[in-house]
Nucleic acid binder design. Structure first.
Lengths: 204, 204
DNA sequence: CTTTTTGTCTATACACTGTTTAGATTGCGT
DNA sequence: ACGCAATCTAAACAGTGTATAGACAAAAAG
């Protein structure tokens, strides 16, 4: 699939082809299954080719992470519509966890600070944009002013909103939420119900 | 340091020497700096030697993770002494985050489910034992019965206690807590104060 | 329409990695 | 003292990410 065929010596759009290839590999085999050479093979290109476009493997994975944060941001943006207070916070956290569970590979990559370039400006901006709905909800519930655009000056109460979501998402992707359920199977619906219970305990 | 010298062909206690070597490497260079061959070199032994004792690299790292959970459990055990309700929960979470920040390498390893054998019985037992203080605190605050010894049947309200701690710890180890502070430096004391604010917002 | 220049990509090589295999060496139980 | 089992070595294998030098093609310059 998507194995971009070569009609000429030059590829044409290798950069985005490599990003797509990386995303497919990560979706199919997880971050641990990803390999720069694998991505190059999938794009039909030599092992050394990606270096010129991304500098290093971390450069390519940073782009994948950026796009993943954008995807998460999109899902979060529509989650709290028409909701206020703790209800908004609950809805956003639920979406956050669902995103992690449904996109395990990408979510794991976002946490692998050793594989991506955390100081990349585009990435930082994407992270900030993705978290905005949570910041707004935290502001709405707790009388917190709208946070400054710089990610440097976040409020403790925003962190209080992010931390449970982040923690729950990690527990979910590591299979520890599924382990708490009676059946060993990963019943998504039952997992959602469990998350809902947890959220109601945190934000009544 | 600790470079166990060889007096004879046989090592004597290679198994624990390898575990110590691994712990030192992880403490000094992080999980990403760890290498099975490095550990073997540090123990003064050939690259193939660890295999016989641990089966694979994951086997060795599983032991390191188990011991790390035991260390975390010890710190948690003494943290909630004499405290009740939300105060106990806050104290435990604070210790959890401090442990993650002061032992970044080990903490990162604990979350790397691709590097360790999650189904290992000793590891699972250590995880359960480490979480017991949190379970007790959650039971105390919310009128929840003492959880069953099987980690399989945890209560949603225990998860509600673990999730923020886990999330905060991750944010701290990835340097995102430090990023929220005015100074870019990692001032541990100021970080603790920030965590305290967050905890007071979560459990007043 | 040629020529030069610039950006892409290949080929090869290097130093590493975890793991496997077959064999050397040692300590222990009998 | 002897054989057996445990332990470790040596060498090799298939991979990895990346650096270097050169081949190729497209765009810019004449």
């Amino acid at each position: 699939m998507t194995k971009t065929k070569r009609d000429s010596y030059h590829h044409g759009d290798l950069r985005s082809a490599l990003i797509s290839a990386a995303e497919e590999i990560i979706a199919a085999e997880g971050v641990e299954g990803f390999t720069l050479r694998k991505a190059a093979r999938k794009a039909g290109v030599s092992p050394g080719a990606p270096t010129h476009h991304f500098g290093s493997m971390a450069g390519l994975l940073t782009q994948v992470a950026r796009r993943s944060y954008e995807a998460l941001g999109k899902q979060l943006a529509g989650a709290a519509e028409g909701l206020e207070g703790n209800a908004a916070l609950r809805a956003l956290t639920a979406v956050y966890v669902r995103f992690a569970r449904d996109n395990t590979g990408r979510f794991r990559l976002m946490g692998r600070t050793d594989l991506i370039e955390l100081e990349d400006d585009d990435l930082r901006a994407a992270v900030y944009r993705a978290m905005r709905p949570l910041a707004a909800a935290a502001a709405g519930t707790r009388g917190l002013g709208v946070p400054t655009p710089e990610f440097e000056r976040l409020d403790p109460r925003l962190i209080a909103a992010i931390a449970p979501a982040h923690g729950l998402a990690h527990l979910a992707t590591e299979g520890r939420l599924a382990a708490t359920m009676r059946s060993g199977e990963v019943d998504a619906q039952a997992q959602d119900a469990l998350v809902d219970e947890v959220l109601r305990a945190l934000w009544p």
